[in-house]
C-alpha cells in the first residue's frame, strides 16, 4: 500500500506525491462502497488541492527529511498495542454490509423514506446535507471559513511587517 511507502521514503517531494496517489486510490475504494459523493470530494480535494498545498509548503521549507535520531522501537510498541486494542474492540461489531446493524436501523431508513415526499430531491445525500442537517453544514462552512482566516493571519501578515522594517532601514 502507498501508506507504507510514505513511511519509508525520506524525500518529502515523493511523500507529497504519494499522498496524492493515496487519496486517489481511497476515492476508488469509496466508489466501491457506494459513496459516490464522498469519492468525488476525496478525488478533487486529495488529489488536487492538498498536493498543491503540500508542494507549496515544501517550496517554502525544505525538501528532505533528516534520518530520525531516536530508535523507532517505542513508537512501534505503542502503535501495536493501540492496534491490538482496536482489533479487540471490533470483535463485537456487526458484519460488513449487515442490513440489521444498529447504524442502519435508526435514522437512516427514516431519511430515505421521508425525503422523496418532503424534499423531493433525487440525491438523498444533498437532501440531508442541506436540509435535515442544515445546522451541521452551516457549522462546517463556518469552520472552513475560520481556517481560511487563520491561514491568512498566519502567513500573509508578516510580509507587510517586513516591508515596513525595510522602509525603516
Amino acid at each position: 500500500m502507498t501508506a507504507f511507502a510514505v513511511v519509508r521514503t525520506q524525500s518529502l517531494f515523493a511523500t507529497a506525491m504519494l499522498s496524492g496517489v493515496f487519496s486517489l486510490l481511497s476515492a476508488l475504494l469509496l466508489v466501491t462502497l457506494d459513496a459516490v459523493d464522498v469519492a468525488f470530494t476525496e478525488a478533487a480535494v486529495g488529489a488536487g488541492i492538498s498536493t498543491v498545498l503540500m508542494l507549496g509548503t515544501l517550496a517554502l521549507t525544505s525538501r528532505f527529511e533528516r534520518p530520525p535520531s531516536h530508535s523507532p522501537v517505542i513508537p512501534l510498541f505503542v502503535v501495536l498495542v493501540t492496534g491490538a486494542a482496536l482489533v479487540y474492540g471490533t470483535l463485537d461489531m456487526p458484519n460488513f454490509g449487515d442490513p440489521n446493524a444498529p447504524a442502519q436501523t435508526h435514522v437512516a431508513p427514516d431519511y430515505i423514506g421521508r425525503s422523496p415526499h418532503e424534499i423531493d430531491v433525487p440525491n438523498i445525500v444533498t437532501a440531508i446535507l442541506a436540509s435535515y442537517r442544515g445546522f451541521d453544514t452551516l457549522g462546517e462552512t463556518a469552520v472552513v471559513f475560520t481556517a481560511g482566516v487563520g491561514v491568512l493571519l498566519l502567513i500573509s501578515g508578516l510580509r507587510r511587517r517586513r516591508r515596513k522594517e525595510k522602509e525603516d532601514v
Partner: peptide
C-alpha cells in the same frame, strides 16, 4: 446539478 447527481456545494 447537485440535487440530481453526486455533487453539491463542497465539491
Amino acid at each position: 446539478h447537485g440535487d440530481y447527481s453526486p455533487g453539491g456545494g463542497f465539491q
